[in-house]
Design a protein around this nucleic acid. Structure first.
Lengths: 221, 221
DNA sequence: TAGATTGTTAATCGATTAACAATC
DNA sequence: TAGATTGTTAATCGATTAACAATC
């Protein structure tokens, strides 16, 4: 039996950030980078950079550093960027259409295959060259155009139902923008974007900064 | 000098989640909740629930639990939900308009005060009753309608510039949807929504699940 | 060879969990 | 009073940082 190398979620959250910086370095024509360089742009320690890469076996060369192209390739592979992902958008409201329109996803191998809504008002509209279909046509569509990711941009009260349906039809990844927690089978992955939670985290930080500033002013006075 | 009670970011990220669940309980007419109840819906330990609240002094009553309304009020206050926040949206593309249209923010005291873009094509369009203005009018607008939060939905190459401008005009919180890291003065808070990083985290998890499933199948065979 | 920088182990730090006395 | 459940300290666990031998 192979060992289960469980990667911590802290590491996973940093991987896309490394990837983003490395793409920038690559664009700039920089072919070589040290853990120290990376640590500075990412505002973490160089030790952590090396530890992170060491989780996957280490991609560097002692005395030299890391080869940018190699790193891009390897981290890309780890992140599943070497595979094209077909995505369906469920919920063609403002947010769904905005996500569907987001050009930069396509550049990275994320393809919007279909857009669905239950509101006849949206059905027939064209977004990014794709006609919005009624949700009732999802089963038929998926049998002809299998997709692996469903983007959930329906109001929270519909989210659980459409997710269950999508999973029955073979979806393996849920990108959830509805503010509910989803229960899914063990072989399905979920990633949540909880906008209002993020906004509240912002106002928390703002309050904290207001207060620490006020405290400082008091100390000086 | 008062003690600096530094709350860890792990705690802060859980606060909006507590808040969301508590609002649901309140809507359901439930007035009392124990750390054990909360731990089950949030899938954390009851110990952590009590620790989290203990950070702020503890809101409970031994032998009884927590009063839902009190908890909503106190956590709301901690999160800065007792204050109305005026927000401006900079970048009136699909995403900016979608965010501006998001009804549920307004219910919680987040008000969209103005929407700005540098593209004449958008200027004059009306979103949620608000006319999109040219970015050149931002200074004038802010002098008449001070806002505290700027929502950044411009392409990444413009993000730094518009953020600098917004901060000069008094913005204290940046909700950043552009995939760049922002440098801001000490008294300004930033919260990032990096969509493509989230999507990559999803494909990482999907790959991991595929592999663990394959490994299991092999073990059984 | 000398210098640089990784790979990797050990030490430290912080967050989570356990335990239980306090008290409603 | 007996039972329940918090507040709070202590123990454990995991993630980050430090250190340095390996090696290019």
């Amino acid at each position: 039996m192979k060992e289960e190398k469980k990667i911590s979620s802290a590491v996973i959250k940093r991987l896309p950030k490394y990837y983003r910086y490395l793409l920038i370095l690559q664009q700039m024509g920089i072919s070589r980078v040290s853990s120290n360089d990376l640590s500075k742009t990412m505002e973490i320690t160089s030790s952590q950079v090396r530890q992170d890469f060491f989780n996957f076996g280490g991609f560097g060369l002692q005395g030299y550093g890391y080869d940018v192209s190699l790193l891009v390739k390897e981290i890309g592979k780890i992140l599943g960027m070497d595979v094209t992902h077909n995505m369906i958008v469920i919920g063609a409201g403002n947010l769904g259409q905005a996500i569907a329109n987001h050009a930069s996803f396509e550049k990275r191998g994320f393809k919007i295959a279909g857009i669905f809504d239950n509101n006849p008002r949206h059905v027939g509209d064209v977004v990014r060259g794709i006609e919005i279909m009624h949700i009732d046509r999802l089963t038929e569509f998926m049998s002809q155009h299998p997709a692996d990711i469903a983007i959930i941009t329906v109001p929270r009260e519909y989210a659980r139902d459409v997710v269950d349906k999508a999973i029955r039809l073979g979806i393996k990844g849920i990108w959830n923008f509805a503010s509910v927690e989803l229960d899914v089978p063990e072989d399905v992955a979920v990633e949540n974007i909880h906008l209002s939670e993020s906004l509240m985290a912002l106002t928390y930080k703002m309050k904290e900064k207001r207060e620490s500033k006020a405290a400082k002013a008091k100390t000086q006075a």
